[in-house]
Amino acid sequence: MELSLFDVVGPVMIGPSSSHTAGAARLARVARQIAGDFVRVSFGLHGSFAKTGWGHGTDRALVAGALGLTERDERLRDSFEMAKAAGLEYDFYTADLDVPHENAVKMTFFSADGGRLDVVGASLGGGRIVITRIGEYPAEVTADAPTLVIVQKDRKGMVSQVSQILAAHDINIGVMRLSRTARGEVACCVIETDGELPDGVLGEVRSVPGVLSARSVSV
């Protein structure tokens, strides 16, 4: 039996819906870590998120995730008030996204210096999620394991330099996925690791010549 007992009795979550509430909070919390600093976030709700999200607190869950709250934090229902207090602006609109999922959202993060990043993801049911796009790169981030998201120049030796850093810290790589844009000059590398990243690893990865940005996503 390859199913965990805790996938049957679980997850522990804020109701009422594992896909529309817990999954939404998780999507935004993972996207937030990929985005870095931001002052405003805009949520484009697709499919069932747009249609029945209002009754399931999808909007509050997304804002809670953007604030860094987990899907089991009871403050989730107060997220609008918390965002106001924290000075985080947010808005919602109905989107028609090109994704093969019923519950999906496009999250646009705006930074204070005018930068913006689109992150698209879907809720798959039972609280499981997948980030399918980061900026212009196709991605597949499930955040089931600690994950490193690196945007880098697409040239020889990049991958081996990063994996050497991880090996030096005794971090095992579970999955590594590289995706390129059509132009082929810059690539997005997603690395799932078997354990949490120790302090300092991210800094070392960022100092590799050709790495444009590196973010870590914790579970």
Binding site: V8, G10, V12, M13, G15, P16, A22, E74, R77
Partner: peptide, 20 residues
């Protein structure tokens, strides 16, 4: 609790979390 955005344990789903 589930309907009021409180914390529950899905068993096996959120909608059926009261039975076990």
């Amino acid at each position: 609790v589930n309907a009021s955005m409180g914390r529950i344990c899905a068993a096996p789903t959120a909608g059926s979390c009261g039975i076990l």
